[in-house]
């Protein structure tokens, strides 16, 4: 089975690096981290991810800006995005680990990582 390529765009480098290690430890993912949101599109073009884990609150460009840039990029507009943010808490999440907030769907940063992996897989196969 081919490893799925995941790009983590998060200004919190510590969270990014640990997510990278944890996801790669499952042997199902190849992970790259970009903590400078202004370089996110460039990195995405090079890395060609199968899925993007996207933080919302970042200096420079925020998650919303990045989403719009990705949608406007012919090569990246199809890449599924999973929004991961510390704005919401695990307590806000449903049994599927997702928080529905104002038409947006996001995963709380403090979620159990196995649940995050489940969300990534669901998103990859189009379940969510």
């Amino acid at each position: 089975m081919n490893k799925k390529r995941i790009l983590v765009i998060d200004d919190d480098l510590q969270f990014g690096r640990l997510t990278q290690l944890t996801l790669q430890a499952t042997a199902n993912f190849e992970v790259s981290v970009q903590s400078d949101s202004r370089k996110a599109i460039e990195t995405a073009r090079e890395f060609k991810p199968d899925l993007i884990l996207l933080d919302i609150l970042m200096p420079g460009l925020d998650g919303g800006d990045i989403e719009r840039l990705l949608e406007g990029d012919p090569k990246l507009c199809e890449v599924p995005i999973l929004v991961v943010s510390a704005i919401v808490s695990e307590n806000d999440a449903g049994p599927d680990g997702l928080v529905q907030s104002g038409g947006n769907v996001m995963v709380p940063k403090t979620i159990d990582p196995s649940m995050l992996i489940q969300c990534i897989e669901d998103r990859l196969c189009g379940k969510i």
Binding site: F15, L21, A86, S89, T110
Partner: peptide, 25 residues
Amino acid sequence: AAGVAHEVRNPLGALRMGISYLKQR
């Protein structure tokens, strides 16, 4: 308060990732 919550959840998320990593190996 909302800001403080956000700032605390970031390292908490990182901690959870770390624990998960250590458990897997």
